[in-house]
Design a protein around this nucleic acid. Structure first.
Lengths: 299, 299
DNA sequence: CTGTTAGCGCCTTCAG
DNA sequence: CTGAAGGCGCTAACAG
């Protein structure tokens, strides 16, 4: 075959094909900060799943602000991406509609979502995770449980906060004033807010950190104050970092598959791009990893 | 102006423009594993710098193997990217030339590079980093110093290994057999190789880990064996992870700006895409962070 | 200096 | 069933 022989070297132009067919086989991926371990893992998962289905991924950082998010979406839409994977920093429904709704590009949200918008979403099972953490602290006899809540801009922050209130209520526990610390998702914020908590008149006996970064910051503050954990204070974390077993004390945490968040979201998106609109929401399971920071013994 | 009024809503088609001008303002970014903290940080740095210059980034995972790397490059070239940012897993010069050389797309390597190829490269100052680590251990009186070398597929692994031999020689120290452990860049490999090291007839009194993952694995092995650090064994690491201060003992390490590796590489690439071929190599500085795992006291 | 035209490389339609 | 032609939206070259 002459064709076969040529095929070896001939590469059809993706650009011309896209111009003609109005399909780019490219998906836009937008997160607040790719360097964060969670988003990096989700990106890897999504990239893998998309590549298997023949899609390429174009990456944008929204830089933790709505303006950046809108710009990113616009750039991506200009590039005529076939779909969007988005962990929002808090775009409004109207802003979202006027940006991507007009063009009708399928969008799957993950981790932090705009309720009811787009072609669906994938979330971590935040409620269950917080329940696991609070229940376990209660099993250890704690009643004075505080929360390093992280930011309420993202749904994951809000869901974890809500679940905390519900769990406390379920156990008949009251949430004292100042016991909930809303802050940025950083180690430094975790340190500062833990110091605030420990400076309280009736300080808590246990702290739930809404992320690994916050937990690490919390441990730093404890170490600075010379606290002995878990005796003086129990600490548990939503997120099980890979070095969790080697911290001092080793960290009791809720673990989940961050890569799966990305790959499942990608599957949903591929489906939406192919079949059309079948809005679906999925949730990634979590499980409790017991270590020493809660008062358990190491396995 | 009618034009101005329309301009608000009208978005020229990037695709048609690209087809016509043969310029996509898109850059391909290829790494073995985006989920690894270093590559994620480099990606963020690169993305930021590229965006400022009007470029978009298309991401590909090579999955730690040459085949994946070639596929990734081909996909990217099909998309007519204007430039490439690549941390290679060991593609050969001939393979590289026949894949990207033909088309002449500028390529800047970073971290792990193909010597002499492409439009330049950015590396971490591996030699200086290892010198800092070995010198410091010698200051503490160590002479029996082993190396968790990581993989030799990447230039960073090879450079760190070479620097280790040179540094040992400079101090008149001999490197016993089995004192250098070549392995994958994973926590598990670090654990396994540390166990091998500790099982040796004359075990080392100090270990240099070529990456944070290896160091964490090393600490895990030590803990399992009930070793008291830094008394029984000193451990230092090339890479300063953000939780380094909270490990037990806190980790003495060589730190550097991973984001800068990406952004500097991106700048070099932008220059190459605009001006043409001015091959340049740059190196990112490192510094020693003294903590307790080497035998120092915490600050 | 402004307005028109001819492709960029492909896919899809229509004619043969 | 095979083959030629038009156009996707843009820009560069050219004519007025």
């Amino acid at each position: 075959m002459l064709e076969a022989a040529e095929a070896l070297k001939f590469q059809p132009s993706v650009l011309a094909r896209s111009l003609r067919t109005r399909t780019t086989f490219t998906v836009g991926f937008v997160v607040p900060d790719v360097a964060s371990p969670f988003y990096a893992a989700a990106l890897k998962g999504a990239q893998g799943a998309l590549e298997e289905s023949g899609y390429r991924v174009m990456l944008m950082n929204s830089g933790q602000e709505v303006a950046g998010e809108v710009t990113a979406l616009q750039t991506l839409l200009n590039h005529q991406v076939d779909g969007l994977l988005l962990s929002t920093t808090g775009i409004s429904a109207s802003r979202f509609d006027e940006t991507v709704g007009r063009r009708g590009t399928p969008c799957v949200f993950f981790d932090s979502m705009l309720e009811g918008a787009g072609a669906g979403g994938v979330r971590i099972d935040n409620a269950r995770g917080i329940d696991l953490l609070v229940d376990h602290l209660v099993e250890h006899g704690h009643t004075e449980i505080a929360l390093l809540a992280g930011s309420l801009e993202e749904t994951s922050g809000r869901e974890r906060l809500d679940a905390y209130h519900l769990a406390m209520e379920r156990h008949g526990l009251t949430v004292g004033p100042d016991r909930v610390r809303v802050c940025r998702w950083s180690q430094e914020a975790g340190r500062a807010e833990t110091n605030a908590l420990l400076g309280l008149a009736n300080r808590p006996t246990a702290i739930v950190a809404s992320s690994a970064e916050l937990a690490v910051g919390c441990l730093a503050a404890c170490r600075e104050r010379g606290l002995h954990l878990p005796g003086d204070l129990a600490v548990v974390s939503f997120d099980d970092p890979y070095f969790g077993a080697l911290l001092e004390p080793s960290l009791t945490a809720v673990a989940y598959d961050a890569g799966a968040v990305g790959s499942v979201a990608a599957s949903l998106l591929v489906e939406a791009m192919r079949e059309g609109h079948t809005r679906r929401e999925l949730s990634i399971p979590v499980n409790l990893v017991r270590r020493r920071s809660c008062g358990c013994e190491d396995a």
